[in-house]
Amino acid sequence: MIEYLLFATFIGLLFHGIHRKVIARVQGRPGPPIWQEILHTLKFSFKETWIPKTASQTLFVGIVFVAIAIWSGALFILLSGGSILLLFAVYLLHKIVEHGMGLSTGSPYTKFGAIRSVISAASELPLLVTVVAIYFFTRSLSIADIAAYQEVHGPLLILAFPAAVAMYLVILSKMHYGPFSIIEAKEIVSGNMTEHFGVWRAALEVAYALKTYVLLYAFVLIFIGSLPLALTLLVMLLVLVSLSFVCAVTPMLSPYDTVTIQTLVTGALVIYILILGVVMG
C-alpha cells in the first residue's frame, strides 16, 4: 500500500505539471516543465516552516494531516473495490479540509477562501446524483460490483452518459486554474492556502496530488471499467488533458455563477434520475 501511495503521489504531481503545461500551450505560452509540481513539493519540503501567530495552531496543523488521511483512505477504497458512497463521503469531507484550512489562520484572505468554499458547496451535489444514477443501473455501490457489471453490459460511460458528465464536472470543479477554482483565486492571493507554506504546503501538495489521482482513477473505474494499469493511466491522462483544455479556454467564473451552473447541472441530473426511475422502475 505504501509503495502505491508513493506511486499515486508521484503520478498525481506529474499530472498537475502536465495540467499546467497543457493550459500554457493552449494559451500560447511555453509553460513550466511538466515535473515543476514535483520540484515545488520538494522545494517546500526544505523551506523554513512556522505557524502564523494568529492561527489556531492545532487546527492549522491537524487539517493538513486530515487532508492526507482522507485521500489516502480514498485510494484504499478504490484499490479494495469498496463503496463509492464512501468515496462520495471523502469528497464531501474534503470540503471540511478547505473550510478548516481557510478558517484556522485568522488571515482575511484565507477566510475569503473558506467562505467561497462554503458557498460553492453545490459542487458536491452532482456527485450525489452520479451515485444514485449508478445505483439504478448496477443495484450496488461497490466498485468491484460496478466493474463486474461493466464487463457484462459495457461501460457506464455509454449507458449512463449524463452521470459521467456530472462526475466530469465534479472533477473539473476541483482542478487548479479551472472555471470553478474560486477558492484559490488570485484576487484573494492563494485563497484558503495562502498561509500554509513550507512543509505544510508540501504536505498539502501531496494530498492534492492524491486527490487528483483518486478522482481520475475513480472516473475510469466507474465509467469505463477495470483496465490494465498502463491503459488506466493512459485513459486518466486523456481525461486530464481534456480537463486542461476546458480550464485553458474558460475564464474563472464569479462565485455566484459557479453556484448557479452547478445547481443547474444538478437539477438537470435530478430530472434524468426521475426519468430513470420511471423507465427502470
Partner: peptide, 29 residues
Amino acid sequence: SPYTAALFVFALIFTVLVIVSRPERQVDI
C-alpha cells in the same frame, strides 16, 4: 459498518480537535 465507522472516526477526530484547539485571532484590514 465500514461506512458508519469511517464517519464516526472523522467526527471523533474533529471533536478531539475542538477539545484541544484554541481559536484563531482574526485579522482585519
